[in-house]
Amino acid sequence: MKIIVCVKQVPDAKDVRLDPKTNTLSREGVQSIINPYDRHALEEAVRLKEKHGGTVIVLTMGPPQAAEILRESVSCGADEAVLVSDRAFAGADTLATTYTLSQAIRKIGGADLILCGKQAIDGDTAQVGPGLAVRMDIPYVTCVRRIAQVNDKSFVVERLMDDGYDEVEVGLPALFTVVKEINEPRLPSLKGKMKAKKLAITTLTAAEIDADVAQLGLKGSPTWVVRVFAPQLKGERSMIAGTVQEQVDQLAEKLLEWC
């Protein structure tokens, strides 16, 4: 089984800042990490490989320094790594990103299964996984919390819902986005780290993935960020006084009003 895991380098949520002029995330001096949801996607891919055999390829679109997260992925069990990197990709929204990723996946011969994190913790759109599946013309399931059955040509998975879960059977090839509940990602291994150090990362440019320049980067992105701001908290606050009984009565009355 050939599994491609899409990973994204994101700023560590612990020290994120916004550049008020450009309305984009200021990445200067901020530690970069693998998007936490993507770690779960990688772990699931490695577990599938360990149990059923196959190859795990990690794929990312980003600047050259994004190779760091590819090496980290290899130290945690991935076999190969592909970096799609070109100045032409800069400023891509989710539409342009899914186009670029789909072209790259075609270039490396497709996959039986594509795994993504549910969403990235910087943009929080949760659009790239489903968008990529549509580009590839394959079925997808979002928010997968468990892979219940692995058959020759299909998988049975559990999709996390607000009020429980759906059990879905999907034919391969397919794409899943995963939630944190699916597994506990492992730490790197020493042999993995040694392999990652020596690994030659495949780098693909816009020309190498046969991309239509009009669909790349800022040019190919209909989404424009007009303004980024921290919302003002405007919640009202009132104190309920009186005996415990009176306080409970008043609270119950208010809660009922809102129902």
Partner: peptide, 8 residues
Amino acid sequence: DAVAKADL
């Protein structure tokens, strides 16, 4: 177990 998985 985690130490083992890490090859240590």
